[in-house]
Amino acid sequence: MQVTITVNNRSITRDVEARTLLVDFIRGELALTGTHVGCDTSQCGACTVLVDGKSIKSCTMLAVEADGHEVSTIESLEKNGELHPMQAAFRECHGLQCGFCTPGMVMSTVDLLQNNANPSEPEIREWLEGNICRCTGYHNIVKAVQHCASGTKGA
């Protein structure tokens, strides 16, 4: 089936099998390998991307469902060599260790701040329900989000 999806502001038309998961389209067809796959149970959030500005799990959406929609992946955040404030905050606060969960964490929390510019610590932790990290113990991830929200890094 032919699909036209705007990925990171580029309109892309491809032929895909109906069963192609959006994450496989992003990684396999477009070689945007920042979006990760960490599970097959829709639980880990490593595959989180934005579709029409909202965070979703790209392993639990078909590429054909994204036909005509806008997808943003982690690769869209950095602009002219400048990290996105959320990426910079993760770096500053040591919000990652192995980095496997990080693209999903960043996309998810970018969405959080769109919904709630100044989330409390419990709100951040609750929002991260769908993002699993095996390394950090979450504390520094939460700090990074607070750091970004407080604008100390400049938004």
Binding site: S42, G45, T48, K54, S55, I56, K57, T60, M61, S108, D111, L112, W127, E129, G130, N131
Partner: peptide, 9 residues
């Protein structure tokens, strides 16, 4: 229900 990403879909 679930998490924010599940709730968005």
């Amino acid at each position: 229900i679930g998490d924010p990403q599940v709730r968005n879909r």
